[in-house]
């Protein structure tokens, strides 16, 4: 299964922008206005979703504008599906 670079979400308030890029290993970069407060929790969620999609090796960048977990999940899932569709 090959993935290509993809994005989902926006930089509007209460949203997040998820950017994915192919990589040999998993890496996670999290930016938000509240420092690293939710970084650990978000990384755990990202790892769980990547595991579910069977693709642990991706570079994941999230710019969080105060998104709820439901929003983060929805944006990451769609970014993954867009990345897969581009193959």
């Amino acid at each position: 299964m090959r993935y290509e670079a993809a994005q989902a979400g926006t930089l509007e308030s209460s949203d997040c922008l998820v950017t994915l890029a192919p990589s040999g290993e998993f890496s996670f970069e999290y930016r938000s206005g509240n420092g690293g407060l939710f970084a650990e929790r978000t990384e755990a969620m990202v790892r769980e979703i990547l595991e579910r999609y069977g693709t642990p090796c991706l570079r994941v960048q999230i710019s969080d504008q105060g998104a709820l977990e439901a929003t983060l999940r929805a944006r990451l899932e769609i970014a993954l599906e867009r990345a897969l569709r581009k193959e």
Binding site: A8, G9, A70, R73, A74, I78, R82
Partner: peptide, 15 residues
């Protein structure tokens, strides 16, 4: 369309 559909589905489940 894909993003809105998924977002709404998630919100329906948790909100």
């Amino acid at each position: 369309k894909d993003a809105a559909r998924r977002l709404v589905a998630h919100f329906l489940r948790v909100l």
